[in-house]
Amino acid sequence: METLITLLVGVLVMVAVYLLLSRNFVRIILGTAILSHAIHLLILTMGGLKKGGAPLLTEEGSTYSDALPQALILTAIVISFAVTAFLLVLAYRIYRETGADNLDDVRRESDD
């Protein structure tokens, strides 16, 4: 299971990085979103998968999955939402103000 998820993380990182390296805003934003999915899964995998029940002490069972990565990811999900929202709005504003849809155009405009 761990290996499988790690392979998935690898593929997600590849896609995300490729998107990040493009010039179109929407691609870049999608890249960051996918990258955060990948990293969440990576963190979760680091704690070991399916090593026990859900980390709820009311559940039956003596072993629990590692709760620390889950706590980290929970905060990370919310933060990455805020980041995505911010980037989206940034792109939206740039597009409305300048009509540029990629970073090179913005750069050119600010140089003029």
């Binding site: 997600l12 590849m14 990948a38």
Partner: peptide, 21 residues
């Protein structure tokens, strides 16, 4: 170059994670 960077980054993340586990 972009493709290379993307693939290499993904592979390195993957290999590192596997080793760590």
């Amino acid at each position: 170059l972009n493709a290379f960077i993307a693939v290499a980054t993904g592979l390195i993340v993957m290999i590192t994670a596997l080793i760590v586990q």
